[in-house]
């Protein structure tokens, strides 16, 4: 850790891991619930299933955020992926 790391990419990467990872976990949770509901799974059951997986997903993407080469890709996958999954979940459960 002797040489100083440039601060902007570092802060951006930390934010991507923490906030982007959270957005991704949120999107993942929503999508698992929405897809399960589509399959006729009971809401409570769907929510429990999503919660059991969500933190493992958060853990995985958090670590990936630090190991990936391209910071832009990290932001796109985590922020964009989280938003896309959330939108997909909302679309799946919209009242028809």
């Amino acid at each position: 850790m002797a040489k100083a790391l440039p601060w902007f990419p570092l802060v951006s990467r930390i934010l991507a891991a923490v906030a982007g990872g959270y957005a991704f976990a949120w999107g993942f949770t929503s999508l698992v619930i929405a897809l399960s509901l589509q399959q006729g799974v009971d809401y409570d059951e769907a929510r429990k299933l999503a919660y059991l997986l969500a933190f493992l997903v958060y853990l995985a993407v958090f670590l990936w955020a630090f190991s990936a080469q391209s910071l832009l890709r990290v932001w796109l996958v985590l922020g964009g992926g989280g938003a896309a999954m959330t939108a997909a979940a909302l679309w799946l459960v919209q009242p028809t």
Binding site: A25, S30, Y43, A50, Y51, T86, A89, V93, P95
Partner: peptide
């Protein structure tokens, strides 16, 4: 992850 309130209230 309080998804119920904002997303799955119905």
């Amino acid at each position: 992850l309080p998804v119920t309130g904002p997303m799955f209230k119905a």
